[in-house]
């Protein structure tokens, strides 16, 4: 069949020639797909609203030799609140960017699709987007087979959390003081941080904002997840760096 239907979340898009955009979609049926949306920059385009980043959209795609193209599309959810707040926009961009970088083309995963969709819905309403995004990061890496090991030392097996826990991105979990490798970046992870990370994995995404976290533990988890994701993707998150720049920018 030349045409096929998919339900997708628009992860990202970039300009192609003057008026077209190449979309990166995470589809429920076919995993990650790239498709050209012709003429969507023009005010007369009927597709332009539904192809914006973060939109949950029904697409009718046409197979092409190199790239598929958007034949029709209709938005299901557009998440307007994410467009109205710079922080939420950056968090949503971080999440879609992670899915883009950590998944391969054409490998569908219903759980990843549902997780991303839930995140976009929760981000619109939550009072604590930082905690929600940490929970999303942990769940996403878990679904992809990188679940951090938080029950013991990844090297000697000693039961943890103990008094001194460190997180090793390289080992993919906790490491005790005795097993630390000199010169290797490992990050302090207190008892509270360990239990909050477990809760972030266990609780529903919509309810994680109720978890009580001290500023210290929150900062430890943020650093650990940032470094773990950097290790997995081999780069820093553009949207999170952008958020820091925007917060710190002094003219």
């Amino acid at each position: 069949m030349q045409l096929y239907r998919v339900q997708a979340i628009v992860l990202n898009s970039y300009e192609m020639r003057d008026a077209h955009r190449v979309l990166t979609l995470y589809t429920r049926e076919k995993g990650k797909v790239r498709a050209v949306a012709h003429g969507v920059v023009k005010p007369t385009s009927k597709k332009r609203g539904a192809v914006q980043p973060f939109c949950h959209t029904d697409f009718l795609l046409r197979r092409g030799r190199e790239l598929d193209s958007v034949s029709q599309c209709e938005g299901r959810e557009i998440f307007p609140a994410l467009w109205a707040d710079l922080d939420l926009m950056s968090y949503a961009g971080h999440a879609t960017g992670l899915v883009d970088r950590l998944t391969a083309d054409g490998e569908p995963d219903e759980n990843i699709f549902s997780l991303l969709l839930s995140l976009l819905r929760v981000l619109e309403k939550t009072k604590d987007p930082e905690l929600v995004i940490r929970s999303f990061e942990l769940r996403l890496v878990a679904l992809l087979g990188y679940l951090p090991y938080l029950d013991g030392c990844t090297s000697c097996g000693e039961a943890m959390p103990g008094p001194d826990n460190y997180f090793s991105p390289w080992a993919g979990g906790l490491i005790c003081r005795n097993c630390r490798t000199p010169g290797v970046a490992e990050y302090f992870c207190g008892r509270e941080a360990v239990s909050v990370m477990k809760a972030l994995l266990a609780w529903e995404l919509a309810t994680v904002e109720r978890i009580r976290v001290t500023r210290q533990a929150g900062a430890q988890i943020k650093l650990i997840m940032t470094e773990y994701i950097k290790w997995l993707t081999e780069r820093r998150s553009g949207p999170l760096e952008f958020l820091e720049k925007v917060r710190d920018y002094k003219t």
């Binding site: 710079l86 950056s90 960017g97």
Partner: peptide
Amino acid sequence: VLSPLAGIGPE
């Protein structure tokens, strides 16, 4: 323009 997705900041 600023781009949260591409990490383009105000500088």
